[in-house]
Design a binder for these strands. Structure first.
Length: 275
DNA sequence: TGGCAGGCCAATT
DNA sequence: AATTGGCCTGCC
């Protein structure tokens, strides 16, 4: 059987797919996860004894996917550093073991999270998928034909009608504006990786349709700024209801990771302490 | 079946 | 500086 088998007990593709940080990763059936990312298609299947079979060769795993899934980072140390009396977070990290913060493409994050406002996760998936089918480059794979996330030029040159047909609603001008800024050099997505986190967020907030929450998602998921906490309605509930208005300062250097465990747990399990 | 979605913008105090 | 209404439309 071809592919490359990887062993790690702190890696759960299915948990990542449901964790709300990515929109093109799904589990068609138990033990199988498929994704389109970085212009490529990948399938991950559970193997015996906690292994994962990646549908790629070892070289592409080492060069591409190891970094994409942040597999060299030890998430155990984050979970072990949970404060002893922080019961809710203890439950959250235990429940969310295997979640990682992906290293996704900043451009895809910019557009995906502009689209995400006032949308449910399934609705976001629908929009991103339609955009890709309409404007993305086809990728022939063993899973069939898939479509890469569209290039900036493709969205910058798209008509309003074409974009509207992807269920973007009032976000059409936001998406097109951001695409044009990237294409025409007003927003350089490579150069801004040199900025410090505050400047990075500030820069993205200059885009129409990008506020503090969306900019924070771009910083965390597109630039791997693990100290950034995107505060959406769920995180607001957690921060207010569980922590009385502020996350403990002890977690500040990796608060984005803690956020991901908390967000995931609150959304999938609930806000009650005992749950 | 209507209300709600992982917000943001612009107008108004 | 802080508050509030309006916004497209898919999904449960």
């Amino acid at each position: 059987m071809k592919g490359f088998v990887f062993y790690n007990d702190d890696f759960s593709p299915e948990a990542i797919a449901e964790s709300g940080q990515c929109f093109r990763m799904t589990s068609p059936k138990e033990g199988v996860t498929e994704l389109v990312a970085l212009g490529d298609v990948l399938r991950i299947s559970d193997e015996e004894e906690g292994g994962f079979r990646f549908s790629c060769d070892e070289e592409s795993f080492e060069k591409k996917w190891r970094h994409y899934f942040d597999l060299d980072n030890d998430y155990g140390r984050y979970r072990e550093a949970v404060l002893p009396d922080d019961e809710y977070l203890k439950n959250a990290v235990s429940f969310g073991k295997g979640i990682r913060i992906l290293n996704q493409d900043p451009w895809e994050m910019l557009i995906s999270f502009i689209i995400s406002q006032r949308k449910s996760v399934p609705a976001i998936r629908t929009s991103v998928e339609r955009l890709s089918e309409k404007f993305g480059k086809p990728i022939e794979s063993e899973l069939g034909r898939r479509y890469a996330f569209p290039a900036p030029e493709a969205l910058a040159n798209a008509s309003e009608e074409e974009l509207s047909s992807c269920a973007l609603g009032y976000r059409v001008p936001y998406v097109r504006g951001a695409a044009r800024d990237v294409c025409e050099g007003r927003l350089n997505l490579s150069e801004c990786s040199a900025l410090d986190t505050g400047e990075l967020i500030e820069l993205f907030m200059r885009e129409k349709g990008v506020g503090i929450k969306v900019a924070s998602c771009i910083a965390l998921f597109g630039y791997h700024r693990l100290d950034v906490v995107p505060v959406d309605v769920w995180m607001k509930r957690v921060i207010d209801d569980i922590y009385g208005g502020e996350l403990p300062l002890e977690y500040r250097n990796y608060a984005g990771v803690i956020q991901q465990y908390l967000f995931n747990y609150a959304r999938l399990v609930g806000l009650g302490r005992g749950e």
